[in-house]
Design a binder for these strands. Sequence first.
RNA 1: GCGAGUUUAGCUCAGUUGGUUAGAGCGUCGGGUUGUGGUUCCGAAGGUCGUGGGUUCAAUCCCCAUAACUCGCCCCA
Length: 463
Amino acid sequence: MITVIYSDSQLSILKLIHLYIQYVLRLTMALSTQPYKGARDYYPEDKRLQKYLFKVMRETVERFGYEEYDAPILEPTELFASKTSDEIVNEQTYTFEDRGGRSVTIRTEMTPTVSRMVAAKRQELPYPLRWYSIPNMWRYERPQRGRLREFWQLNVDLFGIKGIEADFEIIQVSDAIMKAFKAKRDMYTIKINSRKLINTFIKDILGLDEVQSTTLIRLIDKMHKMDFVQFSGQVDSIFNPSQREKNEPEMLFEYLKATNLDDLPESIKDHESAKELDTLLQMLGTAGIQNSEFDPTLMRGFDYYTDIVFEVFDNHPDNNRSMFGGGRYEGLIGMFGVEPVPIVGFGMGDVTLSNFLELHELMPEITVETDIFVVFIGDVYQRALGVASELRQMGLNVAIGGPDQKTEKQIKTAVKKQLKYALFIGEKELTSEQYVIKDLTTSNEETHGLERIVSIVKDYRKG
RNA sequence: GCGAGUUUAGCUCAGUUGGUUAGAGCGUCGGGUUGUGGUUCCGAAGGUCGUGGGUUCAAUCCCCAUAACUCGCCCCA
C-alpha cells in the first residue's frame, strides 16, 4: 500500500488538470443534438400537426367502415426477402441479428405484415374485410425532398372483392381523404390505368416476350423523365427487327398517346380490361370525382400490381409529382399456404402529404392541447392548485405556473406556449370565487365564476 | 452507390481581395413597474467562423481530406 501525500499547491494543480480534462471532454465528446439522419424529432408543435393528419385520415376511412390494426415494427427477414427484390432487402433495409442469432428487419412496408395477419385468420375473418393502419417505416436510403428514412404511411386495404367495385371504393376513399384535407378539385388529379390491359397489349397483341415486356414496362414508367426522341429510340431497341417491320413501335406509341379509352388502338379497344376501366371511370364520374382520368403510361413499379393501378398527382407547378397511389395486387397471402384473397389498397405517406398541404396552404393552425394556464398571484399556490383540480374535473386541460415563478414570468410562459387563456387567481378571487380570465390573444379580461369560465373555454375549443 | 450546393452566436444571416478585440436582427438572461405578457427604454451573457491536415511570418478566408445538412441521380416495396 502506497500513500501519496499532496501539498496544497499540488492539489490545486491536480484540480486544474481535472478541470482541463473535463473541458476537453466536453469539446470532443459532446453529444450531437441532431436526430438520426433521415428521421425527425417531433417537438410538441410538430406532433400536433401529425396528430391532425392522422385524425383526418382515421375519421375519413372509418366513415367507410375501415378498422384499424397494428403490428410489430420488426419482422423476420425472410418475410421481406421472400417478396421483395434482393437489392431492396440488402441495401435499403435495416436488418440485423437479434441476441438469439435470428435475422430481423425493420418494416419497410406493411404489405408482408398485413398479409401474414390475414393469412393467419384467413377462414374466420369477415369479408369484405376493410382494414387500415398508420405505421411508421424505415428505409435505408439517401434522404431528399419528400423522402426520408423514417416516415409514416396510411395503409388502406379492401380484401375479398373480385370486381371493379373494390377499385372504385379504394379510389373513392383516397379522394375523400384529399377532400377531408380541404383540397380542391383542381389541386390534384387521379390517374388510372390497368396493368392487365397494357400487359395484354404488349404480350398478346405485339407478341413481346417476358424479358422485352419487363424492360418496356420499366421504360414506360420513366418516359416522362426524358424527351420523346430519346424515349422512342430506347423503345425501338427493345423490339426485334421483325417486330419493327410490322410497325409495332408505332402501334405502341399510338397506345401510349391515348388520353381516353376511345383513342386506344382498335385491336385492344374491346378488351374486357378496357371495358372495366370504362365502368370504373363512369362510376367515379357519377360519384363526383371528375378529376380522375385514364393514363396509359401509369405503371407504378414493375411486378407488384396485377390489374387496376392509380396515382394521385399534385397539380401544383412546384411539386408536379405523384403523391401516393395504389391498386390491385396479389399480396402474399398465398405464401402462407392458404387460399389467396383479392386485395385492392393504397398507401399514403405523411411526408409527401405534408408537402402538398404546405404548398397549397392547407395546413391549419393547430391549437395547443392545454386550454387554460393558471397564474397565481401572491402566496396562494396551494389554493390555486385546488381551483385547477376543479377545472379539470369540469373537463378542461389546465396547466399552472411554477411554484416559485413571479406573475410576469407565469404570463410569459403561457404566451410562449401559445395558450389562448390565462386564469388569474389571487386572494381577491379566492374570496369572491370570481376569477379573472384573460384572452391572451386580445388582452381582453373578464371576471366570472368557474362554470362560466368553463363554458367560455369550451366554446372556443369547439370553434 | 454517384453528383451539386451549403456549414460563421440558440435561430436567420452579414463579413474579411489572408493582418490585432468577427458583426446585425430575432431569441435568451437581468433591470426601469411588488396583481398582468406580447409594444418602449437601459444593460448583459453567448462564437477554438463544421472537423482534421497543408500553404504562409500570419488562415474564419487559399488548397486537400472528412462529416453533417439541402437538392438532384440511381432506386422506389
